[in-house]
Design a protein around this nucleic acid. Structure first.
Lengths: 236, 236
DNA sequence: TAGTGGTCTAGACCACTAT
DNA sequence: TAGTGGTCTAGACCACTAT
């Protein structure tokens, strides 16, 4: 069975053409799977193969149990340019939104304490933020900081740039970042807010942010929808 | 139906435990799907759901039509450190291999000519290399360079570091790189060598390499298996 | 409350791999 | 040549979403 004979690829091609012809806009909803299977004369299993193919290509995405939607353009993230989320969003003419899902004091786990050079079991802040583009949640981020270094942090406005807050309120400047990027399963705590099925893979970005002395100040663990981000790096 | 009731997640958990207990080594082959469906008392469809879940987690991978295998550790790629592939591989105690799949002169497409600042339609080299870790092909790369700038390039040893070759033989030094990283469908020309199904997604790394004057010298388009790479970036 | 997507059964055929 | 993974049919039930 060669590629041309695969029914799900034929359906994929017809769907791509249909989306183009009908000028489906970003985030508009596709017809239901049952309707598509009737239209293309096959079972739902085959329609889902075609849809998942288009999902892998980044053309459409699914919102858990809600259906399939047309993917908007990616946000370009340039770590070396040191822009915050809202600056990136504005520069690219997108509509961004940040929501603080939770902010509390927790016992630091081994990994986080190690990265922040704290004693294992020390109390740290865990701030969880959800960031959206044009209303679509695309990023779920965990932020960790030392409680003793930043007293009363939770009383500050946490939906804004943390970099600015740390500098203006605590006199702590971020000078360097160590960034690790992998494909990974999206954290179970993030799947509901991102409206993805538990276990789906996304892009995981781990950041350790250091002050001019080289001391770790902040640790971020970010889960992005795979189709929502492009990372750009300039090396010198 | 909550998560605990999903059969495919239960099978996933049992398989993970079995792999740990039986000390399956990297790249060892799992039992066939039919054997697993018999062992776990379900249909092949459900076994495949469990396997695809583990694939998304990066625990196992499939070789097209050959079966499912245990994933080896990721290779850490640090663009800012300017190591070549073999240096990275050696440093991480891995066994690397480079194979030149093809090397020829082609008419440059619009994208490539634009990036290399050449006249559209100019002749350029296209070098295709496949890179493996412990015998597993993980990277398929397309390399583009100006033919007129690098005469007789195809007579050189192309399986080695191109950076060294350009410097020693042509006096051209790479000073800067612009890198873009996305999740993307693996190029159709790469799927056979990487032993993946056409249309599967991977990590795409596009690089434009510049000399000290800021002139583009080389363009790379790389397709990595998603589970085979971690990108590390240090910003200053 | 109607309809949807997620999950699952119980098969089948075919191209391809392993040997 | 035997067996495998990839593809597909024709259903079913359920939790959840949309209204």
């Amino acid at each position: 069975m060669n590629d041309q004979n695969k029914q799900y690829l034929q359906i994929r091609n017809q769907l791509v053409a249909a989306l183009a012809a009908e000028r489906f806009k970003a985030q508009s909803k596709l017809p239901s799977e049952r309707e598509l299977s009737e239209r293309y004369g096959c079972t739902r299993v085959t329609v889902r193969e075609a849809l998942m193919q288009m999902e892998a290509e980044g053309l459409i995405y699914r919102r858990n149990r809600r259906g399939w939607f047309v993917t908007p353009p990616r946000l370009v993230f340039s770590p070396t340019r040191k822009l915050n989320f809202m600056q990136m969003v504005d520069e690219q003419n997108r509509q961004g939104e940040t929501r603080v899902a939770s902010a509390e004091v927790v016992i630091g786990d081994a990994d986080t304490c190690c990265e922040l050079m704290l004693v294992p079991g020390e109390k740290i802040y865990e701030i969880i933020r959800i960031r959206s583009l044009e209303g679509r949640p695309v990023l779920y981020e965990f932020i960790y900081l030392s409680q003793s270094r930043f007293p009363d942090l939770l009383d500050q406005p946490l939906a804004q740039s943390l970099t600015v807050l740390l500098q203006d309120h605590y006199g702590e400047r971020i000078a360097r970042e160590q960034i690790r990027i992998t494909s990974a399963t999206i954290d179970p705590r993030a799947t509901e807010a991102l409206e993805v099925l538990p276990g789906r893979s996304g892009v995981c970005i781990r950041r350790c942010r250091l002050n001019p002395k080289g001391e770790p100040v902040e640790r971020d663990v970010e889960y992005w929808l795979s189709d929502a981000i492009e990372v750009q790096v300039d090396t010198h």
